Amino acid sequence: MPIARKDAKSHARETMRGIWAAALTPFKDDMSVDEQGFRANLRHWIDDLGIEGVFVAGKQGEFFSLTLPERKRLFEIALEEAQRKPGAKAGTIMSCSDQNMDTVIELAKHAEAIGAESIVVHAPVLHFLKAQDDTLYEYYKYISEQVNVGIAMWSHPDSGYLMSPELCARIAELPNIVAIKYSVPREMYARLTRLAGDKLIVSTSSEDEWFDNMVELGWKLYLCSAPPYLLQTKYDRRMREYTDLVFSGEIDKARKVRDSLEPVRAAIRSTCPPEKPQAHSKYWQDLLGQVGGPVRRPMLQMTDAEKLATREAFLKCGLQVSAPAHKATSAA
């Protein structure tokens, strides 16, 4: 049943919790979208890794190289997979970000029409402006009036500016503005957390900061980036483990589990070429047995040398990618 605009905030508070991940878009060698690969990844993330929600067709997902029909189709697939198991529905947040307002609205209305409960819209690049606050308020106000779905803002240096905590709190007064992915320095998102209270769910994409934000700021939602499925396997769910430990109040145990993942983080950081984040993450997915594949232009592919260095680091990082021997023996 559709969520009324006036109920969007309370609904988001009830449903947008835990670990949400930003999906990469798998492509085949002919550069078409690998729909079956996308479904396989979603099932693995939801069923095996315990990821509670998925961010669809955003910057991680190379939305800038996708056609409008492809973006809509990814929305549909994600929603189908998220609702595949009755009583165990995962969340989705559909990325409607675009420089063209008509495209934003078309995508938002499509998301609403197929039954999505939330969308995210990146703050636009604003050319020539020396100030942005009134423009951005009207931008999000207009979008919020077009649909009933919950809307997450998204502020990132890529826009050429950062939305201030005060502006975000002002926009959060709109009835169906429910969350923000706030890719800013910690003092800014901590301030917004205090300013907005229950009017806005504040999150940032950094897994490095997730533990501290749960413990010190009381956050219950991690929205969104690729670490939930790059740092974990079916047999090694340490991010899920430390998150659950924090939620249950076992902070010291959680800290030890969080710290144990540092070799994995270091392996990813040290081998990711500066201009190839999606290509590197997709190759890491391939090493994990997920479906990665190539990237589309303008993104650059990994070289053989870069793949070799990444594979060597992957093999040494300590991620458990198969069942322990004793479990395999007992299962046999």
Rank of each mutant, 00 (worst) to 15 (best):
E14Y: 00
T15A: 05
M16S: 02
K28H: 05
D30M: 01
S32R: 04
V56T: 05
L66G: 02
L66C: 03
K72G: 00
L79A: 10
K89P: 04
D98E: 03
Q99L: 06
N100W: 08
N100H: 13
V104Y: 14
I119K: 02
P124K: 14
F128K: 02
L129D: 09
Q132F: 15
D134W: 07
Y137E: 10
Y139V: 08
Q146H: 10
L162S: 08
A179Q: 02
Y182G: 04
V184E: 08
E187V: 12
T193Y: 14
M214Y: 09
E216V: 10
E216S: 09
L223G: 06
S225L: 02
K234D: 11
D236N: 04
M239V: 09
E241L: 11
E241T: 11
T243A: 01
L245P: 05
F247P: 03
S248C: 11
D252W: 03
K256H: 05
K256L: 06
D259C: 05
E275V: 09
P277H: 02
Q285V: 04
G289E: 03
R296H: 14
L300R: 05
Q301V: 10
E306N: 06
K307I: 07
L319R: 11
Q320T: 13
A328W: 14
A328S: 15
T329Q: 14
